[in-house]
């Protein structure tokens, strides 16, 4: 089994307004706009599924407060940050 990517992101498709700021900012360029429309009528951003480093840049350039969730790969089990949704 190959090593998993260092990170991954989840983009809430219905919260994205398709501004594409994250696709520009993503260093490994692993985010793209979808060809399909979401409920708001935007082409939402999508994670290509591989190559994310978990750097969090997309999170900090994204204008929607809750659209992107960033994960990082941890080899050992660590105590996650105290968080209501965690």
């Amino acid at each position: 089994m190959p090593n998993p990517a260092r990170g991954k992101i989840e983009i809430a498709q219905d919260e994205c307004k398709g501004c594409a700021v994250c696709t520009d900012a993503c260093p490994p360029k692993v985010i793209q706009l979808s060809t399909t429309l979401n409920v708001q009528g935007y082409h939402p951003a999508q994670y290509l599924g591989d190559g994310c480093t978990g750097c969090g840049i997309c999170f900090y350039v994204c204008p929607e407060p809750g659209a992107i969730t960033v994960y990082k790969w941890q080899d050992e089990e660590v105590q996650p940050k105290q968080h209501r949704a965690a």
């Binding site: 999170f59 407060p65 940050k81």
Partner: peptide, 13 residues
């Protein structure tokens, strides 16, 4: 395993 490092803050509804 993956753990969350950034997500919607608690101080946002």
């Amino acid at each position: 395993m993956y753990t969350i490092v950034q997500q919607r803050p608690d101080s946002i509804y």
